[in-house]
């Protein structure tokens, strides 16, 4: 990972204003910002690693721990709030046994709350792996998670079958 970041940094100009785009690119490729990654960026831009850390912790977008395989973002914008977005969040939290901002121990799921994805007329809304799920309800929460369970079981079965056939 650090090697990849090193290579990536070679292509970006050593300008302070590139700090946020660089961090965005690192997170896009590696899903989060590790302490070492931030130190590399600081070295590249000639600023203190504290400054990189200070900037990164200011913005909601940046994560400092690896997220789950499936990312669930529950919208808690105004329109979603009025129709019970918090209930949807609670349902995800209860079903997965984690709180928002956390990742399940098996690293399958993480939950985040977001402040409006701009689909207010279809509230309440959740974004599951970059797909916007409109008009959520607790039963739909169960359906979505069940879908992942089935998918995982199928994958495992296929894996076993392919191993068996080899």
């Amino acid at each position: 990972m650090l090697k990849d970041i090193d290579e990536m940094l070679l292509t970006s100009e050593k300008k302070r204003e590139n700090l946020i785009p660089i961090l965005q690119r690192i997170q896009q490729r590696h899903a989060y910002l590790s302490p070492d990654a931030m130190k590399l960026v600081a070295l590249h831009l000639g600023i203190s690693s504290s400054e990189v850390y200070g900037v990164a912790t200011f913005y909601n977008q940046f994560r400092f721990h690896p997220p789950g395989k499936h990312q669930i973002k529950v919208c808690l914008g105004t329109a979603c709030h009025v129709v019970g977005g918090d209930i949807i969040l609670e349902n995800f939290e209860r079903k997965l046994g984690i709180k928002d901002g956390e990742t399940t121990p098996d690293r399958e799921f993480s939950i985040e709350r977001v402040a409006c994805v701009g689909c207010c007329a279809l509230a309440p809304v959740a974004v599951v792996d970059d797909v916007v799920q409109a008009c959520m309800a607790p039963s739909k929460v169960e359906g979505i998670l069940l879908g992942f369970d089935i998918e995982r079981e199928r994958d495992e079965r296929e894996k076993q079958e392919s191993e068996a056939s080899q």
């Binding site: 130190k39 203190s48 690693s49 504290s50 400054e51 990189v52 200070g54 200011f58």
Partner: peptide
């Protein structure tokens, strides 16, 4: 350059050093 920084945001802002 500053070794100290504000980290986090809003009510939870703190002064810290990352190195």
């Amino acid at each position: 350059f500053s070794l100290l920084t504000f980290a986090k945001r809003g009510f939870n802002t703190v002064v810290t050093c990352f190195e």
